[in-house]
Design a protein around this nucleic acid. Structure first.
Lengths: 164, 164
DNA sequence: GACAATTGTTGTCGTCAACAACAATCTTCC
DNA sequence: GGAAGATTGTTGTTGACGACAACAATTGTC
C-alpha cells in the first residue's frame, strides 16, 4: 500500500522548476542502505541519546557508566587495565576518573606493589549510586527492547558479543 | 622475539599482593554484557576504523561518504534536505561541504526558485571519484561480513533498517 | 505590508578518539 | 648491580562530531 492515507500533503511549494522536489522522505540513500556501518551509527546515536536522557537525572553518561560498572565488579584494577578492557584511551580515562572522583563515586588508591599505578575502588557512596544507575540503565534497556523488539535485541547482543 | 612462541604465558608479574591480578582479559563486564548500547558502540568503533582504513588512500570518512552518496543519488538537493535525511546538523554540513567543494567533488549552485538555498551536485570529477569510493566501501563491507558472518550481517541490516 | 518561518552561515561548548611527550617507576638483560 | 627499555599515569594538542544559539537574507503567511 502507498501509506500516508488521507493526509493531504499541502504542496509546500508552488514552485516546480529545474530542481526535483524530493518531498521530504522520498530521498534515496542509494548505496548506503547496504552498509552496516551507516545503520549501526544511526542506531548507536539513538541508543546513546535515550541512555543520556534516561540517566539524565543522575547525570551519568554511557562511558561513565561503563567505567563505574567495571570498577564495581573488579575492585583494585589499575587505570591501564580498565582502559584496555573498555577500549578507552588511558589519557581519556584520566579525565573520566577525575570527574568521578570529584563526585565521590570512585577513589584512586596508591598501589603498594607498583608505585606507578593506582588501584581503583568505588566509594561507599559510589556503590549505592551505581545500584541506582543500574536500575535506570535497565529501564533504558527496556526502551531499546520496545524499539526493536525483544527477539531482535537478543539476536543483536548475540551477533555483537565478540566485540565486548 | 618471544612472541607467543611456545605459548607459555610468562607470568608478567611476580607480585601477587592484596590486589587481585586480573590476568588481562579475565576482567568481568558485569551488567555491561546485557546492554545493547555497549556492544553497538564497540562494534561501531571497529566498523568505522575499518572504513577509515580501507578508504584511507582516498581520504574519505564515513560521514563524507554518506553525503556524497546521497547527493549523487539525488542531485539538486538543498543542504537542509541532506542534513535532515542523514541526521546531520545543518551547521555541521556546512563544513563538510566546504571541504568537499574545495576538493572539487561537490558544487553548490544557487537555486533560482529559492534564493536562500543551494542546489547540491557532484562535479564530473566527483562522479568518477564516488564510483571509486563505492568500490572501496564495498570492500570494507566484505570485511564486516568476514568479521560477523554473512547471515549475521544481513540480519543486522534487517533489525536496524528502521533507523536509516 | 507586518510578522513568522526557513536556509545557510558563524560561533561556542562538550564529548570523544588518536597522538605525542614527559616523569616516575618497574623490568630486563648484560 | 646498573644501564637500557618498557609501563603507568599525566598533560597537552589535534580533529571529527553532536548540540545550541544567534544572525542575515529570503520566503511564506495572514
Amino acid at each position: 500500500m502507498t501509506a500516508t492515507a488521507a493526509r493531504t500533503p499541502p504542496r509546500k511549494r508552488t514552485t516546480n522548476g529545474a530542481e526535483r522536489q524530493h518531498d521530504a522522505d522520498e530521498i534515496g540513500l542509494d548505496a548506503l542502505v547496504g552498509h552496516a556501518g551507516y545503520a549501526v551509527r544511526r542506531f548507536q546515536i539513538w541508543i546513546f541519546q535515550d541512555f543520556i536522557k534516561t540517566l539524565g537525572d543522575v547525570d551519568i553518561r554511557p562511558t561513565q557508566y561503563s567505567v563505574l560498572t567495571v570498577i564495581g565488579a573488579n575492585p583494585g584494577l589499575s587505570q591501564m587495565a580498565v582502559a584496555k578492557r573498555l577500549g578507552i584511551e588511558r589519557a581519556r580515562l584520566v579525565h573520566l576518573l577525575d570527574s568521578l572522583e570529584q563526585r565521590k563515586l570512585v577513589k584512586r588508591i596508591k598501589s603498594k606493589t607498583d608505585r606507578r599505578s593506582h588501584a581503583l575502588h568505588l566509594t561507599a557512596q559510589g556503590e549505592t549510586a551505581l545500584a541506582k544507575f543500574k536500575r535506570l540503565a535497565d529501564e533504558h534497556e527496556r526502551h531499546v527492547e520496545a524499539k526493536i523488539g525483544k527477539a531482535n535485541r537478543e539476536r543483536l547482543l548475540q551477533i555483537l558479543a565478540g566485540f565486548t
